[in-house]
Amino acid sequence: MQALLHAIVEPGFFADGAVQIAATLGGVVAVVAGLIGVFTVIRSQAFAGHALSDIGSAGGSSAYLAGVAPLWGFVGISVLAAAAMEQIGVQRARGRDVATGIVLGVGFALASLFLYLGMTYHNSSGEIPTILFGSVFTLSAANLPLVIGLGAVALLTTLTLYRPLLLASVSPELAAARGVHVRVVGAAYLFALAITVALCDLTIGAILSTALLVGPAAAALRLTDRPHRAALLAAGISLACTWLGLLLAWDSFYWPPLRHGWPVSFFIVTLVLAAYLAAGALARGQTKRG
């Protein structure tokens, strides 16, 4: 019995300090990403979210260069990029891809510069995979207050705008006719999205963070036709994937042949994909029966 338990949860998992911090930070970010991500999917802004997260690599690397905490770099660049997108015209269906594409290009250019400078002057390449692919086990507890604060800002913004945002997502024309300032609402949501993406950048890395934002939300939207239920479900899926990912990553330190441990983000993103596929199968089963 003991042996079986040890096979599933390798010894020391729950007692380990790094695990506890990772589970808390990862958990907070997962819940925020799930809740906010539902609107990203409803508003078809997955590409914008992806661009914001990729640009995060420029933020992370510049923060590294400047010697400040990476989260500040992620948040700073993400909010800046969101403002740029908004100015170029992310609000219009056609302008959206153009705006996103332009900002994405600039972001990658900056990222390549900062990463290059970082490697040249600091002579360290260990930071780069961490910025790009995350490494939640290495985060310190000092991040926690800021992560919770930023998550609360993103959640409060979205919750406050819930009804006008939903109406504007159904039809900007209908919302405008009701006196909703569609552009202001859209910009405020983009701000919340930028913050959320920055949080995901921190825990699972700039390249992978959209998966956590969009995947659980898309899975939840396959299972329910109410937006608020979808948001709660997405938060649950996202949390489950994150915690299970942590567990598997911990276990993987004991896996042959390397016994070296696999990256956490890989597990989280793979689990998110599995959840998305499972939701699709479940939904198809439901329609067949219904």
Partner: peptide, 22 residues
Amino acid sequence: DLPVRARDLVALGIDGHHLGVA
């Protein structure tokens, strides 16, 4: 694929321009 039922859209006609959750 919009997760909004007919009744949700009609409810947004009551107070869709208000802040917060109904």
